[in-house]
Amino acid sequence: MDVDSFVIGNFIYLTLKNAVPLILASSGEAVSERAGVINLGVEGSMLVGALTGVITTLITGNVWLGFLAGGLAGLALALLHGLISVLFGGNQIVSGLAIAMIGGGITALVGRAYVGRSLFGLRPPPIYPYEVPGPDHLKPILSSVLKQDIMVFISIVIPLLITYMLFRTKLGSAIRACGENPVIAESLGVNVITTRLVAVGLGGFLSGLGGAYLSLGVVGSWVENLTAGMGWIAVGLVPLAMWIPSRTLLTSYLMAALISTSYMLQGRIGVSSYFLVMIPYITTVVMLSIVSIERFKVRLGAPSALGKPYIREERLG
């Protein structure tokens, strides 16, 4: 395959776009896990966000309301996870898996009426709607950046803001304290239940927003199981980013580059397209296995109380 500026431009364009849902979902999940709550329901929140985004945009004709509604839908589903695992102290893994399945089930059912409905004219507009300047051979590369919509840029700002929140503010300290040792956090004056719910909710909102971007910004319509495992990849990227939201930018762009490559190679080289599509998932599994080794986990800075429910103890007497 010939590599020319058109191919490069296409690659950059796809990578920047594909990274958005990953960035949003994994930086949101990083916040949730920093508070000690692992949310495997990201996939579900993304699906719900994607469908709600499509429906809202079709009804209101406003894609920004679609994004907002998508985020709120993701938030609602994540709060169900919060209800079970934080408020009732249930098992986070079981609850998260259930949330992922509920999200898949509901959207398959409700979304049937919306499959293939075109969002023509309702896509987020590019930030530079004019003719791209510059010499012809550079135009594809320039337009791969300039023709992106504003969400691509917002998705870069959000992890930076969250990182500031997490590591510089009192709220961030409270969230991390809940993830390190909820008993001590409580004794220092943190309301662990509320703080964890806030973190899970924020994670859910960003997952929903990422899902909405997938339907409204990337694909441009709704199909069943639109995310196709994006949510799981996002969960896998969190340990790789060492639970630091700003680093999810790096991991997400790497993963998105891999995804774009596997798209672009389909039909162009003599490898089954099924195998090519598998590559991002295999990569996630391999990387997760490596970072799951206990020694690495400690060194990467995994929150000590990750996955452990906190139940306020009734005192003796």
Partner: peptide, 15 residues
């Protein structure tokens, strides 16, 4: 009763 991975100020801020 302190969070080991955080700074002195971060621990105190919580109270």
């Amino acid at each position: 009763m302190l969070i080991d991975k955080m700074t002195v100020a971060e621990n105190l801020a919580l109270s």
